[in-house]
Design a protein around this nucleic acid. Structure first.
Lengths: 317, 317
DNA sequence: TTGCATAATGGGCAAATGCTCGTTAATATG
DNA sequence: CATATTAACGAGCATTTGCCCATTATGCAA
């Protein structure tokens, strides 16, 4: 054993003593200094060293601690601005369970702001459930804009549009996008989107402070299909082009690239590029949505993610 | 699940979040407050709760951490004023290894005092080694008094008397007890102890600020026998009376009670009652001494103990 | 030995923390 | 429904902590 090693050992031993006195015996650094015959500063250095040298291990025995660690790792891995991970209830298949409450809390934080805020809303069970979780708030200073059409293929209004629900409880001015989610043709879409009120909505979305969006899976029974926005043939076409998920109607592949397909020419939602330029919070969980979430993250369409423990684990593999 | 439990759970969950942010993510309480939408005080309460509720587990990965925990437990269990535990070197049988250095450090602390101090010294390998470890110190303001005789049965001075060694390095005035450790009879002991200079030494010991004593085992080759202070027959007699250990010549049983024996009538050391009335630091370690240490602690003859890891573990069983 | 380089030390200060106390909100009770 | 009881809250303050910087030890080569 070399002399320098010996000296390091001695210092580490002192650090361990100081660390023990500080963390286990709850002494103040002054008390440690007195007991070890040091100045307060030296004691502080030893305590600090005990931590730096990794002698001190802190563990948090609570399920949410794991969630927070997962959140940090997901945030890190995908370069997100933030990530929230909730507990998973294995006995439930509800795609919105847990994450909707978190999304609602985040929405509420925006609504409680004094400054006028523009909030953009996408589609999905998660978003709608989140909106339902909101308490009654009077915040007429804010505005809510939809980034996705609210009309079904037959031209009827979509009862599920979260914009209606959110207006009921917040009394904030609403800006619905009264267009079909998917136009019947690329030409129709161009005409629709050229309309002035629609363009105003798009401009408003561009200036939104935050957008909340669900992430749709593109397996054999995706929301887009069950809600009648696309046909079985169209779905198959998207799938064969590599589509794994969609956000507000825009289908993308595993790398997050928009699918080069007829459908994407007909989507009349706010563009993903627009969403990517503002704070866009994705709200999604579940095995089914995993490829979709991965694609959305790969394409950098989201700045923030709200998901659950099981999904976060998968995302880290 | 009752409502109150639910509320407690929610609070604990918040506590876990706050604790995670504080201990794992190294946030300040202000940052936690901002992130969780609370006041700084509430965040502080949650962090504190996380600790109180036992969610936060702090572990120190270093051998000395274990020693310090053992020391705390021994101190607690035996009602000591303090306890120090050193690392055990399993490859050595030296009865003084490690503990002598600690005892020396403690002695040094007394010698470095400004105020005049009286230090009492007992016998034993541990004490002598400790004294040898002392650096050269000039501290003539202090006094050192022996609590045990320094004469062998043949009347010769004991070279091992730590008093001689300690005087060489400290230049503090020495007060040796120039009497036989064990007088040849109870009557002789009475005569000896009645002498004025001897009585003065006893009085000085009574006023000592601290005493350092070894703890002698009473197996079949104890120091008392090998140094020729008692005969084999006397040892056997003590053993048959239940003697398990001795301090400065006084033999006691497993409960710490002084042995009712001829030998204890002839011991001319300072009484254990006197030692018990001042700060008396026992210095001992090793499997052999375990019953002796247990007895000494049971009899409350010591206020402080310096031992090693392995011995401390045994003491806690 | 001298001079230089590096590390350790303690003073001092701003930030962070723990705690008490009066007030307010929530809940139970009559 | 009014009132009592309790828990939570935040303001304010004293203590504790982290860290910069000037100064002092320590080592080391010339």
């Amino acid at each position: 054993m070399s002399k320098s090693n010996g000296a390091l050992d001695a210092r580490l031993e002192d650090a361990a003593r100081a660390g023990w006195l500080y963390y286990v015996a709850q002494n103040t650094q002054d008390e440690i200094a007195k007991k070890m015959g040091l100045s307060r500063q030296s004691a502080q250095r030893l305590v600090s060293l005990a931590m730096t040298a990794g002698l001190v291990k802190i563990r948090l025995d609570h399920p949410v601690a794991r969630c927070m660690t997962l959140a940090m790792d997901v945030k890190q891995k995908y370069g997100l601005d933030s990530c929230e991970v909730t507990l998973t209830d294995p006995s439930s298949n509800d795609p919105a369970l847990g994450i909707a409450q978190v999304a609602a809390a985040e929405m509420e934080r925006y609504f409680l702001r004094k400054e006028p805020t523009i909030m953009a809303l996408g589609t999905g069970r998660e978003i709608r459930t989140a909106v339902d979780e909101l308490p009654s708030l009077d915040c007429s200073q804010h505005r809510i804009v939809s980034v996705v059409g609210s009309l079904a293929p037959d031209g009827s209004a979509n009862d599920n549009d979260p914009l209606n629900h959110i207006g009921d409880v917040t009394h904030a001015p609403r800006h619905p996008l009264s267009v079909p989610v998917i136009a019947s043709s690329a030409d129709e879409r161009r005409v629709i989107c050229a309309q002035k009120p629609i363009r105003r909505n798009f401009d408003l979305a561009q200036k939104a402070d935050v957008a909340f969006v669900g992430i749709g899976e593109l397996n054999d029974s995706p929301p887009l299909l069950t809600d009648g926005f696309i046909t079985w043939e169209e779905l198959k076409s998207i799938q064969s082009s590599g589509g794994v998920g969609e956000i507000v109607g825009w289908s993308f592949d595993a790398q997050g690239q928009l699918i080069d397909s007829d459908i994407n020419e007909r989507v009349s939602s706010v563009s993903l590029e627009t969403l990517a330029s503002i704070r866009t919070i994705g709200v999604a969980r579940g095995q089914d949505k995993l490829p979709a979430i991965r694609g959305a993250l790969a394409g950098k369409w989201l700045s923030d993610l709200i998901t659950d423990e099981a999904t976060a684990e998968q995302l880290l593999k």
